[in-house]
Structure formats: structure tokens, C-alpha cells
Write a protein that binds this DNA or RNA. Structure first.
Lengths: 186, 186
DNA sequence: TGTAGGAGCTAATCTAATTAGCTAGCTTGC
DNA sequence: GCAAGCTAGCTAATTAGATTAGCTCCTACA
């Protein structure tokens, strides 16, 4: 029979799509194999098991998220850059809940880990926002963590269906952008 | 042989302790059973499977977290209440990373779900903080979500070892408390 | 056109959750 | 004090899923 001719990238993309469509927790090797038209043991020719696959999905997600926010922030500065970053971030998470969920528990294996580089690049975007607010260098790490926590928290709660109440989520998100804006001013 | 005489509560507590000690992802029915001195199928007399067990751990965690923050906030108001809430929240997560992790993906099954009630009680604590800042009623839901997102994000990232950089985490957390304080003022 | 490498396969193993059905320890009513 | 019923806990078996071993044969390249 003819070979499928797959690459590791194909496998990761298929897995990420499945995670987006059916939920990160429902991701199995069998489902990925089925979608690619092969048997699950064959996946091991391309990736190093489920843990590796999840790690790669996280890397893909952070990379894409970094690109999306970077694109959205082009030509903006100050509060506009903050809003652009925030909206792009949220759009990505809404469009790719499975990919984003993969990032929640992901840990770096070391400084050579592609996930590390992708994360650093995403943090660069946030740092650019912060410079627009004149955050001092010695506060930069703290501010980075605060911003990251805030948006990550919103995204994680939304991805987990954690918000149950009446008020509109889009409005809440806009409110939060202003909240962050006030928090960053002196 | 004599019976162990277990209750559902015993099972959940044992499981929560295991999650705290060895990591939420390493929680298995066998480990829980072993710690309780019974065989894993016997657990099903008390709980309804692993998914139910996880849900109950989340409920336990949110309940305990609600009590801890409530206690810490007693006799405080305004920015002091915010700081008291935040520090109690973080202490709990540091002491019980496994329990807290259980809450990250937990969803309510309905308004009768004990997790729902526990969450409502925790949100009450946050609402009390917000009233101290004079947040208008029509903004209350948005502000609640923003605060919750911020602290949840920090806790989730820390529980997942998501912060890798140099700066001290305690300092970052204090910085974030002030950041939130500024964000809540007008 | 021959061959080396590796993609994909089947078969088998292992771990973990879960279900079925049995046994016997407590509790309650007499 | 004792019999009956409830049910906690047990063993055995099933299922799903990840992973490993080892084979085959397609494909790229000399």
C-alpha cells in the first residue's frame, strides 16, 4: 500500500485540530491516527508518545499566539497596543480552545526547548506593551507576570467554561482591558 | 476481615492529599485505594469513578479556599481586604497545589452542584473586596471576573511551574496586588 | 536497477478504570 | 441474645488506551 508520507508537523497539526474540535481531554493517539489514515503505533515514527505530542501542541499554540498578537499590535502603541494584544489573544483562544488548553500545564524541558523560545517571543509582545506604559526596568518582570496572569486567567477560565453568570463576556473582557490599563498607569 | 469503615469524605481527602503530594496528574484510583488500605474497585462504593472524585476534590478545594480567604479578611476593609484576600489565596494554593489544580478544569453540573455553592461563597469574598472600592453594581460582574482571572491566572501558572525567570515570585505577587489595587481605583 | 533506510503494519504487553457478582461484617428489630 | 438485611469490600474479568517489538515493503538515491 502507498505510504501516507507524514511529517511530525502533520501529526501535531492533526492532533491540535482534534483538540480544538473535540476537547483537549478527548485527545487520544487512536483519534489522531484515524484522522491521518494510519494505525496508532505508526505515530511513534514521528513523535515520541502522547506526552511529547501534547508538548508540541503547546509549542504550536504559543507560537501561533505570538504571531497573532504581534500582527495585531503592528503600528499601535500605549493603550491601543494593550487593547490590540488583548483582543488578539482572546480571539486566538476562542478559535483554538484545545490548542490553548495544551499550554496550561506545559513545562519547559530546558533553554533549548522550542516552547521556551516561543514563550519568550510571546513575552516580548507583552514587554512591548509595558514599555509603552513606561514601566521601569526593575519592575518589568513583575509587570510581565501580572499581565500574563491576568489574560491567562481569563482565557483559562473561559476555556474551562468557568464563567457562568449573566453578564456578557465580551463586555467583561473590555472592562478588564481598562482595568489593566489603569493598573499600569501611575 | 474488619471493614475500614470509610466515607466518601475520607476517600476525597485521601485523594486530595495524594494530589497535593505527588501531583494532580499522578492521581490514580489504585493510589487512593492503597492509601486507604482497600482495593480500587471498593472505591466505587463511595464515589462514582475518577471523574466524580476529581470533581469532589475541586469542590473541597474551593470550599477550603473560601473559608481561608474569609477568615483572612475578617476585620479588614478596602486595600487591606484586597491584600488579605490575595495572600490567603496564594498561601492556600502553595500549600495545596494538587487540590487547586483540580479546580482549574472543573465545571458545574447544575445549580444544585455543591461546587456551584462553594464557588458562589468564594465569589462573595471577592465581592466584599470590590464593595470596599465602591465598584458600581452594574460593573460588579465584570470586576469579579477580572479579579478572579488575575488571581486564578497567577495561581494556575505557578501551580504549573509556568514562571521561569529570575525575579522573586513573592515580590511579583506583591507587585500584582498593587497593580490590582490601582486597577480598581478611579 | 539495486539497495539502504525508514514509514507503516500486526501482534503483543502493560497499566488503569470500570463492571459483575460474591462474601461476610455491622446494625437493627425482636 | 439472635436472625435478617444492608452494604463495604473482595476477586475476577472486561475494556480502552498507550506503548514496544519486530516485520515488510515503498521510495529515494547511487
Amino acid at each position: 500500500m502507498p505510504r501516507a508520507g507524514l511529517t511530525a508537523e502533520d501529526v501535531v497539526t492533526a492532533a491540535a485540530d482534534i483538540a480544538d474540535e473535540t476537547g483537549y481531554d478527548n485527545l487520544t493517539m487512536s483519534l489522531v491516527a484515524e484522522r491521518l489514515g494510519i494505525r496508532s503505533p505508526s505515530l511513534y515514527r514521528h513523535i515520541d508518545g502522547l506526552a511529547d505530542l501534547r508538548h508540541r501542541i503547546a509549542t504550536l499554540a504559543i507560537t501561533e499566539l505570538g504571531e497573532a498578537t504581534r500582527d495585531a499590535m503592528l503600528g499601535t502603541a500605549g493603550p491601543d497596543a494593550l487593547a490590540a494584544f488583548a483582543r488578539a489573544f482572546r480571539s486566538y483562544v476562542l478559535a483554538h480552545p484545545g490548542r490553548y488548553t495544551a499550554t496550561i500545564g506545559a513545562e519547559f524541558t530546558g533553554p533549548e526547548d522550542p516552547l521556551f523560545k516561543a514563550s519568550a517571543r510571546l513575552l516580548d509582545s507583552i514587554a512591548a506593551v509595558l514599555r509603552g506604559y513606561g514601566i521601569a526596568a526593575d519592575e518589568m518582570d513583575h509587570a510581565l507576570r501580572a499581565i500574563r496572569s491576568t489574560f491567562h486567567g481569563f482565557a483559562a477560565l473561559q476555556a474551562a467554561n468557568g464563567f457562568q453568570w449573566s453578564a456578557d463576556l465580551d463586555e467583561s473582557f473590555d472592562w478588564m482591558i481598562h482595568f489593566v490599563d489603569r493598573g499600569l498607569r501611575r
